[in-house]
Write a protein that binds this DNA or RNA. Structure first.
Lengths: 155, 155
DNA sequence: AATATAATGAGAATGGTTCTCAATTAAGGA
DNA sequence: TCCTTAATTGAGAACCATTCTCATTATATT
């Protein structure tokens, strides 16, 4: 699990109370990292654990977490938002690279290299100061690529 | 306006009829390119023009357009999807770079350079074959950057 | 023109998310 | 520790973009 006290600090610094519900949501996120969970999935996991929490509270909590940089809200166009822990929410970081397989739907996280070149380029050409970015790469994972080759008989 | 007959071809090739409603939605998209319109915005523009069309038809049409590569569906996390014409839907192309200003909310389209390096990198490291990508860059446009500097008095 | 198939549109339904508000809990001072 | 105040919680209602339904209408083919 992540450092719990820095989580607490982050909450208090931003003027929010440390509550049991917020700690519970946080612990689910930690235990399931680096998964991208929906609000409802988190709600169900907590309920299965016999921790009583309201769905509204889960949404509210995730909203706060995202605002203060504990989580990132990501959207894979399947009708609901997902939340993932920011890698190291003490330092500045912004990486949201997801490899989304069009075959099996699996989502993998990827590295954040090379984006700096692109960002510098954009600053030069557009005078646009990039604060954050979201990159989604759609394609076929190794497994599905293999499967496709066999099925289509392509060389 | 774009070449209308290739639009018609694209529809027929994919087994869809050419209807007046589809032509109307297409013409709104052409006239407003490169804007990113919501289904409702398109519906309103058509209604103002006294062209009768149902909102469901607009949604359905945009769904088809996106499926057959006439439009791209983009999402700026403001609660509704937007649609934009694919640059040249006859050839293979995939560029969805948007500069989203956190100050004024304006969305600008950016170039697609440098992504090839990143894609090659991902193929090497993850054996993941990229078909398409979506890149959203959040930050401050030239104007808002200027405004921020004045307000905060930072050098 | 006639028939079969596809498209349309009005409104209902859906479903993820946000809102409301009364009850509960946390925070900080005395 | 107790008290006061402000913040948080939770159940359900409300919201709202999008999808679905199905009777009507238009398109394509014979």
């Amino acid at each position: 699990m992540k450092n719990n006290s820095s989580f607490k600090n982050k909450l208090e610094e931003s003027g929010h109370s440390f509550t049991s519900q917020r700690a519970e949501v946080y612990s689910i996120l930690c235990e399931n990292a680096p998964a991208h969970l929906t609000a409802e999935e988190i709600f169900i996991k907590l309920t299965q654990r016999h921790l009583k929490i309201g769905l509204s509270t889960v949404y509210r909590t995730l909203g706060i977490f995202t605002n203060i940089g504990i989580t990132d809200k990501v959207d894979f166009d399947d009708g609901m938002s997902r939340y993932e822990l920011v890698e190291n929410f003490d330092g500045k970081n912004h990486r949201h690279h997801h490899l989304i397989c069009l075959g099996c739907g699996r989502v993998e996280d990827a590295l954040d290299d090379l984006m700096e070149d692109l960002e510098n380029d954009v600053l030069e050409k557009f005078s646009f100061n990039i604060i954050d970015h979201s990159v989604k790469l759609y394609g076929y994972c190794a497994e599905c690529s293999m499967k496709n080759k066999i099925e289509t008989g392509s060389k």
